[in-house]
Structures are given as structure tokens and as C-alpha cells.
């Protein structure tokens, strides 16, 4: 029963919802689509946040209790979480000057202030560090010296030059050497980085995206069907 009922649920709902987009009877559209997607699934999902709190709490509590390694940092995690949660949920909406409010999640709340001035800069910094990582990743594939990595890197370099003013400058210079637009043999075309970039994006890039897209669609369809028909059931987690 612990396995059969969930499997039956998936099968029944899977089959019903397979046909839902086909039907546009008002009752079906209003209830099975609108209500379920906008309300029911959201309500069901809301409760999952409890597990995230529990897991974070337990992980850090265990660390602190065992005094293992860097357990002092665990306090920081707990303080951060509890502070933000308390400000959002429990704290009274007192005016604390400077136009700010202690509790709640409004635009002028302390909760939002911490988010904007601590979480956002840190996340943006993490994001910006990608510039360094991209450089080292490129350097590594440059050293790899196999034909695939070389192709990838050369294309990347062309596209990069094609996207900055430098590419256009090189082309204009080469065009001048070539004798301008009127020249019979336009060898300078091979330096037209913008044009080449556009060609790469329109042809090989678009082609591979499409090919991968078809494959991914097939994989998704097969996986969905395996789940609906109970062929793949590892999501159940247990065997009993």
C-alpha cells in the first residue's frame, strides 16, 4: 500500500493530465488547470520549506554539539536564518527611524535591508567571479590540445572578437589594405568577425541547439512515460 497507492496516483493523474491541454471545457480549464496549477500545487509546495529549516538546523546543531572542525561558523548560519525568519514573521512592525520598519517583509523592512545590502552584494560577487573562472577554463582547454577542445576555443575566440568593437576595427583595417569595397578579390572577408560570428550563430550553433533539443525532448518524453507507467520508480525512495 505504501508503494502501490503513490504509483496508482501517478498513473491516474498522469493520464488525466495528459489530456487536460486538449480539453477546453470551461470547468476543466477553470479547475484542473487554473485552480490546480495556481493554487493547489502552490499550497502543497509551501509545506516543504519546513524540511529545509529542519535540515539546516539539524546539520548545524550536530556540528556544534560535536564541536567538529569549523563548528563556530555553524552559529553564523543559524543566526542568519533565525534572524531573517524572526524579522519576517515574529517581529512587530515598529517604526525604528530612517523610514524603516522592524518587522515584516516590505520594501522598508529590516528584512529587506539585510537582503539588499548583504545577500544581494554577496550573490552578485559570486556571479561576477565567473569572469575569472571562465578565463581559467579557457586556458585549460587551450592546453588540452585535442581537436574538439581546439574547435570549441577557436569558435569562442572568433565570437568574442566579433562581439566587441575590436573585431570591426580589424576588419576595417584589413578592408583598407584590400583596397576597399571595390576590390575584385575580397580576401579581407576572412577578417569580418561580425559576419563570421553571425554565420556561426545562425548555422552551426542553431543546428546543434536544434539537434540537442530534439534529443532532450525525446529523453524527457521517455522519462515522463517511464514515471507515469511505473517503469522507473526510484523517486519513491524506498523499497517497502
Amino acid at each position: 500500500m505504501k508503494r502501490q497507492i503513490p504509483l496508482m496516483l501517478v498513473l491516474t493523474l498522469g493520464i488525466i493530465y495528459f489530456f487536460v491541454p486538449l480539453v477546453s471545457i470551461p470547468w476543466v480549464v477553470d479547475n484542473l488547470q487554473y485552480e490546480v496549477f495556481n493554487k493547489w500545487l502552490k499550497i502543497i509546495g509551501v509545506f516543504a520549506v519546513i524540511m529545509s529549516v529542519a535540515s539546516l538546523w539539524r546539520r548545524n546543531a550536530v556540528k556544534i554539539k560535536r564541536k567538529s572542525g569549523d563548528y563556530a561558523y555553524s552559529y553564523l548560519e543559524l543566526i542568519g536564518m533565525v534572524l531573517m525568519a524572526a524579522l519576517a514573521i515574529i517581529a512587530p512592525r515598529w517604526n525604528i527611524g530612517n523610514g524603516m520598519v522592524l518587522g515584516g517583509i516590505g520594501g522598508n523592512s529590516v528584512y529587506n535591508w539585510i537582503f539588499m545590502n548583504m545577500q544581494v552584494p554577496m550573490q552578485a560577487t559570486m556571479f561576477s567571479m565567473l569572469a575569472f573562472y571562465i578565463a581559467s577554463a579557457a586556458y585549460r582547454s587551450f592546453r588540452a590540445r585535442n581537436i574538439e577542445a581546439t574547435l570549441l576555443l577557436i569558435t569562442a575566440a572568433i565570437v568574442m572578437i566579433g562581439r566587441v568593437p575590436l573585431g570591426e576595427n580589424i576588419y576595417q583595417f584589413m578592408l583598407k589594405l584590400n583596397g576597399g569595397e571595390a576590390a575584385a578579390f575580397q580576401w579581407s572577408r576572412i577578417f569580418d568577425f561580425q559576419g563570421i560570428t553571425q554565420f556561426i550563430l545562425d548555422v552551426p550553433n542553431a543546428a546543434t541547439k536544434r539537434a540537442i533539443g530534439f534529443g532532450v525532448a525525446m529523453g524527457m518524453l521517455a522519462t515522463s512515460l517511464k514515471i507515469i507507467f511505473g517503469i522507473e520508480k526510484s523517486w519513491l525512495g524506498g523499497t517497502e
Binding site: Y133, A137, R140, L152, G219, E232
Partner: peptide
């Protein structure tokens, strides 16, 4: 991954990369 935009980065930084559909075939 089936995130096409992230595949190039995995290719340059990982030893092996399953592209798109191969992810679904892996299990």
C-alpha cells in the same frame, strides 16, 4: 545536463560531460 548554455562550461572544466539526452539515458 540538458541546459545547453551550460554544457560548454562543463566540457572545459570536467573530465566527462553527458550532453542533453545522454543525461536521461544515464540511469
Amino acid at each position: 545536463t540538458d541546459a545547453i548554455t551550460q554544457v560548454p562550461f562543463f566540457i572545459t572544466s570536467c573530465d566527462y560531460t553527458l550532453i542533453g539526452e545522454e543525461l536521461y539515458a544515464a540511469s
